[in-house]
């Protein structure tokens, strides 16, 4: 994708969700996260650190909100008035939702963040000038800015030997975020292309999905209607490009966060359940 193409076709890339999105997609990488099976253990998050060369920033910078956890587990207490939290905690894995009509994209002054034919919000690190408009505009707060040059501090020899050579190490002044493990997607697509076939469902496994001990996350291509993730979206009656879902049955537990903002997230969550009969 050349920058000329993007600039020339700017209006096409700025179309909102109500206009039916803006791409002739090749793939539509999508997730489903079952919050009734997510146990909040952080395995996904650490797997992400390992896969994606995420820097640890230390206590002071963490306090300043500069942690680089592309995938984080948020924890909420839902009944502040009760004496004890009787139904436990509410956990939710939160990462870039790869929105179909992403609010981060149109505000980038240099088109460093753009929409790929795979339905991903890509971040071109080399193009990024660090305006941080995208981070400000993201309702999920899942974009992480390199305020410091972490390569100098985060991986003292020989920790740097672990760095994944399939992706870069980002330096000061660059915005970064979850990519749905684009390097793994690329590798699988290349293999499929060389073997002259389509990508098979289940072939692409992002690091978080692979680690998840309770298999709460399902990843795949919703353009492949036979894929597991497409089946789940269908089963739970969650549609894309809408700001409100119409459900035939309240037991269809799928929902998307902030879809009322018209951002068209690519991540569907399944409601957490609690047994109220005990």
């Amino acid at each position: 994708m050349s920058i000329k193409n993007i600039v020339d076709n700017w209006s096409k890339y700025r179309k909102g969700v109500e206009e039916g999105g803006h791409h002739d997609y090749e793939h539509r990488w999508t997730m489903s996260i079952n919050l009734d099976q997510c146990v909040g253990c952080n395995a996904c998050s650490t797997a992400c650190y390992a896969e994606n060369n995420l820097a640890t920033v230390g206590k002071e910078k963490f306090e300043a909100g500069q942690a680089m956890h592309w995938m984080r587990i948020e924890r909420y207490w839902d009944k502040p008035e009760s004496e004890y939290p009787e139904d436990g905690a509410s956990f939710i894995p939160m990462m870039c939702q790869q929105c179909g009509a992403a609010t981060c994209e149109p505000v980038c002054p240099v088109v460093a963040t753009y929409h790929t034919p795979d339905g991903l919000n890509a971040q071109v690190y080399n193009r990024c000038v660090g305006s941080r408009y995208c981070g400000t505009n993201c309702p999920f707060k899942v974009r992480y800015f390199n305020f410091y040059s972490y390569p100098e501090t985060a991986w003292p020899e020989p920790l740097n030997h672990q760095l994944n050579p399939d992706i870069t190490v980002r330096d000061k002044g660059v915005m970064e975020k979850c990519t749905f493990c684009v390097q793994r997607i690329k590798a699988v697509k290349n293999t499929a292309k060389m073997e002259d076939r389509d990508v098979v469902d289940g072939e692409v496994v992002p690091a978080c999905v692979q680690a998840c001990p309770s298999s709460a996350i399902v990843f795949g291509d919703t353009m492949d209607e036979s894929s597991q993730v497409a089946g789940l979206w269908k089963e739970h009656e969650v549609k894309r490009q809408v700001t409100e879902q119409e459900k035939s049955d309240p037991n269809k537990r799928g929902y998307r966060i902030f879809e009322e903002l018209g951002v068209d997230p690519s991540v569907m969550y399944l409601e957490r359940m609690r047994d109220t009969d005990i």
Binding site: E74, R75, Y76, D78, P80, N251, M273
Partner: peptide, 19 residues
């Protein structure tokens, strides 16, 4: 991590009775 313990009504994590 996180500045608040409450979802502030935003319903990130929705809970329903067991189906």
């Amino acid at each position: 991590m996180g500045g608040t313990d409450s979802q502030q009504g935003r319903q990130f994590v929705r809970t329903v009775p067991t189906y």
